[in-house]
Design a binder for these strands. Structure first.
Length: 417
DNA sequence: CGTCCACGTCTAC
DNA sequence: TAGACCTGGACGG
């Protein structure tokens, strides 16, 4: 669950779940994790969290012990410790019963209750990391969501930086300036403003001011119900009401935070709300090509002048069977509650997890994996279909009404060119 | 069974 | 500017 909004939601999750909970003992790490041990042991401590861009910081605070003096046992902390986490591609926090630890719970904090509960940092791919006594990573810029002024100021005052020579879609992933923006956010943001992804970043950013013009003006809603104007001249409704690119780098992520739930996390049922929120990323009918770093850029319309020459373009989806397909358009509307929410989760995962005495927890030897994936040449669209929340039985009957069907534009691919 | 793909950094040629 | 680092889900055969 890793872009700015998910990291922030993770911090809210920790604060909510751990409120009033007393933790005790030593912080434990799985054997397979390469991150550092967390040298913190304490009879009683609390845990709180904060986020900044794509990082989360946990603060472990020792509680005052009753027996003053003598309270600090040897090796037991009496001062707070801060741990900074990065989530990689799959990190998240979960608070569960001790006998229900999630698979891949690589760092764990045990409560003093009985039965004991555990706050776990779960990370299947282990691209994430944590840093005991760490600080916010120095090279990362201000948070796009909660340090908006600083974020804006840093960019407008550094436009001469060579970093802005690149296409805007690639610069949006530069955490030195856009701390919190990730692959789905860059697609959604550029899509909202209809900015071709491969246009030089400086071109779209120069001219923007430190102060957000909208800050002063009344926040206008975007509801343009009445399309026709008295003289029939209609102009782009967007401009001036949604704000400029930098402002959207702030407001769009906040929309995800406000969706609540877990944002980009298929685990939960409310993942459907997130999917309904997406207007471009992984959406049927949108185009996608790999940027210069091999990351898939989703967009609509003109790719822009700096688009990778050859560029392989994956994806083309078409849609066929499969449950939900209803509307993808911008109407979204947070979907209805879908009466049959059904918590399900009938399938119990196998035990697994660190508890195993064996040292080798993970399967797969290291060497075995050194595959190389060339096969660059061909860039044919591979899969189709977007996944569906697992477990859902998909009542595919329905049948899409011939209504507002979205004609897929078929990816540029294979087109002469 | 195998291939491709994924919300992100990191560091070595 | 390529890999490296990882697991697992969706698909294809």
């Amino acid at each position: 669950m890793p872009e700015g909004p998910e990291l922030h939601l993770a911090s809210l999750y920790v604060n909510k779940m751990c409120k009033g909970v007393v933790f005790t003992g030593t912080v434990r790490k799985s054997d397979v994790s390469k991150s550092a041990d967390v040298p913190f042991t304490c009879e009683a401590f609390r845990i709180t969290a904060t986020s900044r861009g794509k990082e989360v910081k946990l603060t472990l605070t020792p509680m005052k012990s009753d027996d003053a003096k003598k309270s600090v046992k040897a090796g037991h902390a009496d001062q707070p410790m801060e741990i900074v986490f990065r989530f990689g591609m799959s990190g998240f926090f979960r608070f569960t019963a001790e006998d229900a630890l999630p698979k891949h719970a690589h760092l764990r904090f045990y409560s003093k209750e009985t039965p004991c509960r555990v706050l776990s940092f779960v990370d299947a791919r282990r691209f994430g990391s944590w840093h005991p006594n760490g600080t916010w990573q120095p090279d990362r810029g201000p948070c796009i969501m909660f340090e908006y002024e600083g974020f804006r100021e840093k960019i407008v005052s550094h436009l001469s930086d060579r970093a802005f020579d690149r296409p805007i879609c690639e610069v949006l992933l530069n955490q030195k300036y856009f701390n919190g923006i990730g692959n789905y956010l860059r697609a959604e943001i550029l899509f909202r403003l209809n900015i071709p992804p491969f246009v030089p970043a400086r071109t779209v950013l120069e001219g923007l001011k430190s102060e957000d013009v909208l800050e002063n003006k009344k926040m206008v809603k975007i509801e343009i119900t009445d399309t026709k104007t008295s003289d029939g001249v209609k102009q782009k409704p967007v401009k001036g009401e949604t704000g400029d690119l930098l402002r959207l780098c702030h407001t769009v992520p906040l929309e995800v935070v406000n969706l609540g739930g877990k944002g980009y996390d298929p685990e939960k049922a409310d993942y459907s709300d997130f999917k309904a929120w997406l207007q471009c990323y992984y959406v049927d009918g949108m185009k996608s090509i790999r940027d210069h770093n091999g990351r898939t850029m989703w967009f609509k319309g003109d790719p822009g002048p700096m688009a990778p020459k050859d560029s392989k373009s994956p994806k083309a989806k078409k849609r066929a069977k499969k449950e939900d397909d209803h509307d993808y358009t911008e109407k979204k509307k947070v979907a209805r509650k879908s009466s049959a929410s059904t918590p399900k989760k009938n399938v119990v995962k196998k035990e697994t997890v660190t508890k195993t005495p064996k040292k080798e927890t993970d399967a797969h030897s290291k060497e075995a994996v050194s595959k190389r994936r060339k096969a660059r040449e061909v860039n044919t669209p591979r899969h189709e279909q977007r996944s569906a929340p697992r477990g859902k039985k998909s009542s595919s009957n329905a049948e899409p009404p011939a209504g507002p069907q979205r004609r897929s534009e078929r990816v540029t691919r294979q087109n002469s060119k």
